[in-house]
Design a protein around this nucleic acid. Structure first.
Length: 940
RNA sequence: GCCCUGGUGGUGGAACUGGUAGACACGCAGGACUUAAAAUCCUGUUCCCUUUGCGGGAGUACGGGUUCGAUUCCCGUCCGGGGUACCA
């Protein structure tokens, strides 16, 4: 009884492509419109390792959902593309000399083959590739708009920078409410007299896309800027060279201007609470007060931000960030040397270094004293790394009694600690509970009252005001790399940046032969001198945009991917609106989603897009993890040791080596240990010839060389990537799809294993046998279905529909198994049952159901068929066996009509003969009936 | 440290808003078919006691609580996974 997917899968792959089965049209405005539904997957970076079994988890689930919605009568947009700019392709190019566009094309081709193998219903005519000029033209276009805009705080949206220029010329800074880093004051007259260069510099403080000095991780030895994840333990991952922080001119996006809107609009989204919380924490809104502390013997004052103005009487010292502009001015002659040395040390340390010794206390006294504006107390001013320049004002009032870091610092330097809040035992300072003490007029107030009272008093005295702060910082948008979007920016002879005219877009990335960074910090593009000097009198920007640029708006391009006049037509956007369902991994929970939301809001301000939020509903899929197998290499004596010979005490002598997972056998008992036998060791040696003569020392078991196993991310470097291809080759795509769904809830992280795939394969063979007999003869007939068969079918329809709606694909598979088992048991051959069954399963097993559909005599695709409708009459059971319990203890059961109302059930329950014997136990106080479930009598 | 998650048989997991815990599947054991094997089919499979059959008890990481009734809600503890990093 052969059921062989190979016989029909290839046929349908070709047919779907030739017929354009999955093409989706945007109806024109006048036409009859089906309701739209937009299902989006996070598009992949086309890596050299190909698609692994983890990718399709979310893709299959969303494909099922799309097919279901389509069958329910929606016009479903379900596109796919590639996020093809990025570092790996560039590094690969440096190693091999193969141009990133070539390796990317190869990889995309491979991905496409794999996608097709699985049978996704993507409309490939809408493919989007972020590294293609036709696409990144619009990435550049949006950037140019950001360059041309400022954020108006009064209007609460982005406005043309020309409006700001006009306002400056008319009234100067006065009356302008714009998001800015600057607090420069000037009048209209002054503005007009500023040089062009000066004006350009000032506008930079207002533009939404702007350039500023920002600190980057600079690696002198590699001559390049490194991303955080390219640095390990303070040195570069490649080569182990030292990394330092260095200020460089970088393009940035003023995402901080949108902080409040990004926070507020979260409310209405259908996302999980945990995801919303993560976004909220990232945006990090806090309310507090900005307070000025006068400096003794100076006209300078130190401005600090605090969320706890109530604790101001507990302030015993002040701290400035090392980069704070007042440091040099305030430091007295005696302390100058020490403070300079400290500043230099801080500047030479990377972010990573600073982070790695969080617990270490360091700082220097400047010799200056500030004065508490309320108590007049003298406060020594320190400089210390634990205060960050780019949060708040870069200075703090230190209250060691109510802040852990301040306390650590105070204890280390022997500074006084004054308790100002009497807290209940066990409460932390951050709980904001307790009563104020030692705080003059605040004494006796609860913390929350005191915060308001203190803030009010500071405001009265003119030394402070309420202030809201956000953790969200502006996005650094420059990379000194090759494989990214060039900026649509040119510099004139004076070095004044201008945006390239729209007619010049796209600014096409020039071909290079050498992708290595240049010395001196400029990106590889600086080598393309012809390109840089292409426009007479101008030079081009040589930085490129980061990978997030292209992925921040790709969902819009799918709506109208071929449009040469706009990023998408207004008509297409008016119809498709925004993404109804977005499916993707948690690892993008913060940055990608935040950038995309920002981009959308900016375009909304420009009236380019019709909605404020890009993704109405979001489902996070869990990671499929791989097993990571490690063996230990003794660094001194050059041998491999069985894992049981490696203990904590001697562990440092060994270097871990990853082993190809296929080479390893399971130990059986202990999931933390697997082993290699003698043959497997030989295979390992053949795979890694450099170890051909290396000794393998066995431990307790002379036949089993133990490895260390753990569960973790699948990656090429750990040799644990499992490709779907061979599984599909063996079991077929339908089986692969259903098995991935059957594994468990898609939100859950889980290690990949093929345990149990046989169960799904067996199920598909059973399904086949409903339609074909043992001689592979078609057996579906038009005999009338039995009542029983209709019940089995409709029970399944009800459950599957509900479960797809709540994205519980794993239970759908179980439902199919039960239904098919029932129908087989009943010997059902009726087309009236088997035809809807095929439609029911079509989203899950598109290949086989398409085959059945054709065999059932249909000429169109099952993809376009209707999802089976539920006929309620088949669900009704005449009687149901109810468990009867007394005070929650189960006593007996009784058959009761299932269709009855709750009241009727209660009434008939009271007449049950089974109950009589229990009545003696006491009076019936209450009868609780859960229709279809149970009846409980409360006696007592 | 903080934030977010999760903890159910030998295994993956079910149980939708509190209502017969362990669906479905894997694995395992026994049986049928077969010269044999594979495939297929049937039966059993949470644990403990009892057993010829019945029956009884415990049980959803642990300890409490609310409720007629808790895997589900609340409080505390322990353990795993992910994220984050001195945010005043």
């Amino acid at each position: 009884m052969p059921f062989s997917p190979q016989h029909f899968e290839a046929k349908w792959r070709t047919a779907w492509r030739e017929r354009g089965t999955y093409r989706v049209d945007t109806p024109s405005a006048g036409d009859e419109r089906k309701p739209k539904f937009y299902v989006l997957d996070m598009f992949p970076y086309p890596s050299g390792a190909g698609l692994h079994v983890g990718h399709p988890l979310g893709y299959i689930a969303s494909d099922i959902y799309s097919r279901y919605k389509r069958m329910e009568g929606f016009n479903v947009l379900h596109p796919m593309g590639y996020d093809s700019f990025g570092l790996p392709a560039e590094q690969y190019a440096i190693q091999t000399g193969i141009h990133p566009s070539e390796s990317t094309a190869t990889n995309m081709h491979r991905y496409r083959e794999q996608f097709d193998l699985i049978g996704f219903s993507f409309d490939w005519d809408r493919k989007v590739v972020t590294s293609e000029p036709v696409y990144y033209k619009w990435t550049q276009w949006a950037f140019a708009r950001m360059f041309d805009s400022y954020y108006d705080l009064a209007e609460g949206k982005a406005m043309p920078i020309s409006d700001l220029v006009a306002a400056f010329a008319k009234t100067g800074v006065t009356g302008v409410h714009a998001a800015s880093d600057s607090n420069l004051q000037f009048g209209a007259e002054e503005w007009r007299e500023f040089s062009r260069k000066r004006q350009s510099e000032i506008l930079m403080d207002y533009r939404i896309a702007y350039r500023k000095q920002a600190y980057v991780n600079w690696c002198e030895a590699l001559g390049t800027v490194l991303a955080n994840d390219e640095i390990k333990d303070g040195v570069s991952e490649r080569g182990g060279h030292p990394v330092e922080k260095r200020p460089m001119l970088q393009w940035c996006l003023r995402t901080s201007a949108y902080a409040q809107r990004l926070l507020d609009d979260l409310e209405a989204l259908d996302w999980t609470d945990s995801l919303k919380t993560q976004q909220r924490n990232w945006i990090g809104r806090s309310t507090g007060a900005q307070v000025r502390f006068a400096v003794e013997g100076s006209d300078a004052s130190i401005e600090v931000y605090t969320t706890r103005p109530d604790t101001i009487y507990g302030t015993t010292f002040m701290v400035l960030a090392p980069e704070h502009p007042l440091v040099d001015r305030l430091t007295i002659a005696d302390r100058r040397e020490a403070v300079s040395a400290y500043k230099a040390r801080a500047a030479g340390r990377s972010d990573i270094d600073r982070q790695s010794d969080v617990k270490e206390v360091s700082g220097e006294f400047t010799g200056a004293y500030a004065l508490n504006p309320l108590s007049g107390k003298r406060l020594p001013v320190y400089v210390a790394e634990y205060v960050l320049m780019d949060y708040g004002t870069g200075a703090i009032m230190a209250v060691p009694s109510d802040d852990e870091r301040d306390e650590r610092f105070a204890r280390h330097y022997g500074i006084e600690i004054i308790p100002v809040v009497d807290r209940p035992a066990g409460a932390k300072a951050s709980d904001k509970v307790g009563t104020l003490i030692n705080s003059a007029f605040l004494d006796g107030m609860p913390v929350k009252t005191a915060i308001a009272a203190a803030a009010a008093r500071l405001e009265e005295l003119g030394v402070g005001e309420g202030k809201t702060n956000f953790k969200l910082r502006d996005a650094n948008f420059s990379r000194q790399r090759y494989w990214g979007e060039p900026f649509p920016i040119v510099y004139d002879a004076e070095g004044i940046p201008e945006r390239a005219p729209d007619a010049d877009l796209p600014v096409v990335l020039p071909k290079l032969d050498d992708y290595k960074p240049t010395s001196g910090g400029a990106g590889p593009l600086a080598r393309a001198t012809d390109w840089v000097n292409e426009l007479p009198g101008y030079t081009r920007e040589t930085d490129t945009m980061p990978a997030v640029a292209g992925s921040s708006w790709y969902f819009l391009r799918y709506m109208d991917p071929g449009n040469a006049e706009a990023l998408a037509s207004a008509e297409a956007m008016a119809y498709w609106q925004n993404v109804d369902l977005y499916v993707g991994g948690t690892e993008h929970a913060v940055s990608h989603l935040l950038y995309a939301r920002f981009w959308q809001k900016f375009l909304y301000d420009l009236a380019v897009v019709p909605t404020k939020e890009p993704f109405a509903k979001l489902i996070n899929q869990g990671m499929i993890q791989g097993v990571i197998e490690t063996i230990f290499f003794h660094k001194g004596d050059k041998y491999f040791a069985s894992a049981d010979l490696v203990e904590e005490a001697n562990r440092d002598a060994f270097a871990p080596n990853y082993v190809l997972v296929d080479y390893v056998s399971d130990y059986g008992f202990d999931d933390r240990a697997s082993y290699l036998d003698v043959d497997q060791i030989e295979r390992f040696r053949a795979w890694r010839p450099e170890y051909a003569d290396t000794e393998f020392r066995f431990g307790a078991d002379p036949n089993k060389f133990l490895t260390h196993s753990e569960v973790g991310k699948m990656s090429k470097s750990r040799y644990n990537v499992v490709n779907p291809d061979d599984i599909i080759g063996r079991y077929g795509a339908d089986c692969f799809r259903m098995y991935e769904m059957f594994l468990g809830p898609i939100e859950q992280h889980k290690p990949w294993s093929v345990n149990g795939i046989e169960g799904v394969a067996k199920f598909l063979r059973k399904l086949y046998s409903l339609y074909y007999d043992e001689q592979d003869q078609w057996t579906v007939s038009d005999v009338a279905p039995t009542e029983e068969a209709m019940k089995s079918l409709h029970t399944a329809i009800k459950k599957v529909r509900e479960d797809i709606e709540r994205f519980s694909m794993n239970t759908c598979v179980s439902t199919f198994m039960i239904c098919v088992n029932d129908l087989r048991g009943q010997g059902c051959r009726s087309g009236q049952v088997l035809e809807p069954l095929a439609r029911l399963m079509a989203p899950f097993a598109p290949f086989f159901t398409e085959e059945l559909w054709e065999r059932l005599g249909h000429t169109d695709s099952i993809h376009l068929a209707q999802f089976p409708q539920l006929e309620e009459q088949y669900l009704v059971e005449s009687e149901i066996e109810y468990p009867i319990s007394v005070n929650g203890k189960k006593r007996t059961t009784a058959r009761m009509p299932s269709a009855a109302s709750k009241e009727e059930l209660e009434a008939s329950a009271k007449m049950l003969p089974e109950l009589a014997s229990y009545l003696a136990e006491g009076e019936i106080k209450r009868v609780i009936v859960v229709p279809g479930r149970m009846i409980n009598f409360v006696v007592g």
